[in-house]
Design a protein around this nucleic acid. Structure first.
Lengths: 143, 143
DNA sequence: TCATTTTTGATACGGCTTATCAATTTCAAC
DNA sequence: GTTGAAATTGATAAGCCGTATCAAAAATGA
């Protein structure tokens, strides 16, 4: 039994409900995707080039978008590229970014996350993932 | 004295520190920008077409990016376009984004902002601005 | 196996943003 | 107010990312 049996089930379920087919490529891409916390289509294209040199970039895009529809992934625009987040990955962290020197500090805050849930449910939303970035100056750059 | 004297000062300060020049176009674009809470380059292009039909789109992009560097604006990628947020605008708002239909709900939450300040100061940071986006499904898309 | 429907891979295309570059403007020094 | 070096502008070409297209291949169910 595969390490990713649960997610594979979610995918097959989605495929079944939408008259879509289970293909070698979709399986390959899902396996690779689930090993990451987040990835871009281009990155995955290069990663998989060894396993299957003929796998097309368009197929990667299509498949990652399929994962979004199936609820396995979450697309996020980061700079000019689209990043696909692995929803099943635990331990999402947020960032403090120094606009002076570019230093990045990661943090996690349960209270903030709880309040986010509150805001979401008040608006009828169910959160899948989030992005929180605080921009400012670190102590060294403040002078 | 202009309504936007403070921001104009910030801009001139930035220009001075980087050997950049104060131009008619930059003044025009800043005035238009500060009247908005957020805007895309394309939108501004059309807005300003009346005041200055020869103002080029490239100049708008360049200038909005300049505002980001000066700390007056913040770029945010929404779908395929880039939106420029007016940082000086009171009531910075965060976004709930539906991954199903793309609906965007704006919100503000003082408690979250207070906790952000706490996290920042605990790490020696002074926050200038932030970005918080919650991704999930709205009530309609949850089925 | 066969027939039907979906998927794939290669590539053309499209939208948004940046790079290029000659002409113009700014601005400090005279 | 002229002058001249340096930056900016505007027009447009180029670039990048992601999607659409479509003939060939693969998957599913009878």
């Amino acid at each position: 039994m595969s390490k990713h049996a649960k997610e594979m089930g979610v995918l097959k379920d989605h495929l079944g409900k939408h008259q879509l087919k289970f293909t070698r490529q979709r399986e390959l891409i899902l396996d690779a995707f689930l090993k990451q916390e987040h990835i871009t289509a281009e990155e995955m294209y290069h990663q998989l080039a060894r396993k299957d040199p003929h796998l097309g970039l368009a197929t990667i895009y299509r498949t990652l978008n399929l994962f979004c529809e199936a609820g396995l992934a979450q697309a996020r625009h980061f700079g000019t590229q689209t990043q696909y987040d692995n929803i099943s990955h635990k331990g999402h962290h947020d960032h403090l970014i120094c606009t002076g020197c570019g230093k990045i500090v990661e943090f996690e805050n349960c209270d903030i996350e709880r309040l986010q849930e509150e805001v979401a449910s008040r608006n009828g939303f169910t959160i899948q993932t989030h992005r929180l970035e605080l921009y400012g100056l670190c102590s060294r750059c403040r002078h």
